[in-house]
C-alpha cells in the first residue's frame, strides 16, 4: 500500500472518516506518521478550545480573587486552590466517574429533559475538565499580573477622570494582559501537553478514535518497540509547542508595541511559573 493511500485512509481516522479498522501488523513508518498525526487533531482541539474558553473564565476568576467582597473572593480562591492543588489525572477520573453516575435518560429541569450522555464522551467531558483546570491556572497568573499593575497607571487614570468599567477596559486590562502574557504562554504550552492525558485517564476512545498518544501507545503495544512511535509523538508535540510559542509571541509583540524596544518582556519558558 502506498503512502498516499495510507494518508487517504487514515489522515482523518481520529475523527471517524476513512478506513474503519486500524492496521494490525507489518506497520510501516508512513502508517505511524499518518495515524499519530491524525490523533494530533484531538490534541489541538482540546488545547485550543479549552484555552479559548478558559481565558474568559480566568479573567473572571482573577477579578474575583482580587475583589474585596468575601462572597466573591472566597469561591474564586477555593476554585483556584482545588484545581491547582490536585493532579489533573485525578480530576479526569473524578469527573468521569461523576458523569457516569448521572442518570442515563437525562435530567428533568422545568419539564425539559437535559441529555447527559454526551458528558461521558471525551470530546465534552474532558474538555470541561481541561477548561476548568486551565481557568484556575491562568486565573492565578492573571491575578498575579493584576496585583503588579503599576500604581502610577491607576493614579493617572483617576487624574483623567476615567473610572469604573472604562478604566478597567482601557487601563487595567491591557496592562494586566501585557504583564501576564509570558507566563500565560507557559500555561498554554503545558495545557497542550496536558491534553495527552485525556485518553489515558478514564475517558474511553470511542471506536478507537483517540489522540496522538493513544495511537502511539497502540503501535508500541503491538510492536513492543517504543523507539519508533514515541519519538514521533515527541516530534509532533515539539512542532506544536513551537507553533504555540510563535503565535503567542506575535500577540506579545502586539501587546507591547507601545513600549520602547528594551523594555519589552521576552517570552521564554520560566520554570517558576510552570504548572
Amino acid at each position: 500500500m502506498s503512502c498516499a493511500q495510507t494518508i487517504q485512509d487514515y489522515a482523518l481516522r481520529s475523527i471517524g472518516f476513512g478506513e474503519r479498522l486500524l492496521p494490525r501488523s507489518d506497520f510501516t513508518l508512513c502508517e505511524h506518521f499518518v495515524l499519530i498525526g491524525s490523533g494530533m487533531i484531538w490534541n489541538v482541539y482540546f488545547g485550543a478550545l479549552a484555552l479559548f474558553l478558559g481565558f474568559f473564565l480566568a479573567i473572571a476568576v482573577a477579578l474575583g480573587k482580587a475583589s474585596s467582597n468575601p462572597w466573591v473572593r472566597k469561591p474564586a480562591e477555593w476554585f483556584i486552590f482545588i484545581f491547582r492543588g490536585s493532579p489533573l489525572f485525578i480530576q479526569f477520573f473524578l469527573a468521569y466517574e461523576a458523569f457516569v453516575l448521572l442518570p442515563k435518560v437525562g435530567i428533568e429541569i422545568f419539564g425539559i429533559t437535559a441529555e447527559t450522555r454526551w458528558l461521558t464522551r471525551a470530546w465534552a467531558g474532558a474538555l470541561i475538565v481541561l477548561f476548568l483546570n486551565t481557568a484556575a491556572y491562568s486565573g492565578e497568573i492573571f491575578y498575579g499580573a493584576l496585583r503588579s499593575v503599576p500604581k502610577g497607571d491607576m493614579e493617572a487614570a483617576d487624574a483623567y477622570g476615567i473610572t469604573g468599567w472604562s478604566r478597567f477596559r482601557r487601563i487595567t486590562w491591557p496592562t494586566m494582559m501585557r504583564l501576564a502574557w509570558p507566563a500565560y504562554t507557559n500555561e498554554a504550552i503545558f495545557l497542550f501537553h496536558a491534553t495527552a492525558l485525556v485518553f489515558f485517564s478514564s475517558f474511553p476512545a470511542w471506536q478507537q478514535r483517540g489522540d496522538a498518544l493513544y495511537y502511539a501507545n497502540y503501535f508500541a503495544d503491538r510492536t513492543f518497540n517504543p523507539f519508533v512511535a514515541y519519538p514521533i509523538v515527541a516530534g509532533y508535540f515539539i512542532v506544536l509547542t513551537l507553533c504555540v510559542i510563535m503565535i503567542f509571541g506575535l500577540i506579545n509583540t502586539r501587546l507591547n508595541r507601545h513600549l520602547p524596544q528594551e523594555h519589552r518582556a521576552k517570552i521564554r519558558i520560566r520554570p517558576q511559573i510552570m504548572r
Binding site: 501537553h193 498518544l213 502511539a216 515539539i238 509547542t241
Partner: peptide, 21 residues
C-alpha cells in the same frame, strides 16, 4: 529542551519500556 518540549506522560510511557529493553 527536549524533555520540556514534550508531554511528560510520553516519556513515562517511553522510558519504562525503553529502559527495560
Amino acid at each position: 529542551s527536549v524533555v520540556r518540549g514534550v508531554p511528560d506522560i510520553v516519556f513515562f510511557l517511553f522510558f519504562v519500556i525503553a529502559l527495560d529493553q
